[in-house]
Design a binder for these strands. Structure first.
Lengths: 138, 138
DNA sequence: GCAAATAGTTGCATACTGCAACTTTAATTC
DNA sequence: GAATTAAAGTTGCAGTATGCAACTATTTGC
């Protein structure tokens, strides 16, 4: 188990490192926000902030920044005027695509020395693990 | 591949969340520093900062904080007086142990619905992946 | 011995974070 | 249907984190 803890730290650190080097011009947090928006269909601020487990006030300011640099737009929701819907601009969509490509390429590169079976096993395990971890409450 | 990117984000986020909830009284960054120190035998500042990919100035200040709250000590190295060696205090060691236990317990809990074979596969994949990711240069 | 390199610290200037308090709008309650 | 309560976001702090530049102190190389 001791060894698993080191694996935990190492994996967390390296995933973060990959993410950092993959999102030029934007921070890791901002990249996560953009990605999360891309997963939904015009989500509200609360929706995205909750999905990311971010404090809404910090989130609000990050959204302000992202709108200022024209990666997203805030659109008032006519049926409930308290709500602002978030949408990626075209620039934002392109950036998300680039970041995804970069992350994907880095992952591919680091798994390149595995055979297809190993690679498939690792990817499936990653997916399984992430699904299990999602369901942690609190 | 599109799906793998979401897995990537989800996994990174959840590992970070587990870490955050596991290190009470200390930030995730500080916990990483403590863990990294625990992996070495009286490492120097540079050694740990490099291992974590942290800027030495930020690191220096974090070490200042950690020493102030008596989790680590800086010990001058007699053979090269530019160097300070880092060591965990007893309190620091205990904290690292608690954090490790908490992380371990959370991981166990979230994998509890798997059978032994699956769990073993996932853990081995995690380890394999983290090893591969380590070797990414730059 | 002196120039260059290395380990670490400190001075900014900037950015991130979260609690408290606020505004605006919607839902509830009586 | 007015009054209360709740929800979505924003802003005011105050504390912390981050990184570049410049600094001190030591060591290494020639």
């Amino acid at each position: 188990m001791e060894r698993n803890i080191s694996t935990f730290h190492s994996l967390a650190k390296n995933l973060n490192k990959i993410h950092k080097t993959s999102c030029e011009g934007v921070t890791v947090v901002q990249s996560s926000i953009l990605h999360e928006i891309s997963l939904h269909d015009n989500p509200s601020m609360q929706t995205v902030a909750n999905a990311l487990g971010m404090d809404i006030t910090t989130f609000s300011r990050q959204i302000g920044t992202l709108e200022k640099i024209k990666l997203i737009k805030r659109i008032p929701y006519s049926k409930d005027r308290r709500i602002l819907l978030l949408t990626l601009t075209e620039t934002g969509q392109n950036l998300v695509g680039e970041i995804n490509n970069h992350i994907g390429a880095t992952m591919e590169a680091s798994l390149s020395s595995m055979n297809d079976f190993e690679r498939e096993t690792v990817m499936r395990s990653m997916h399984l693990l992430s699904e299990k971890l999602k369901s942690i409450e609190k």
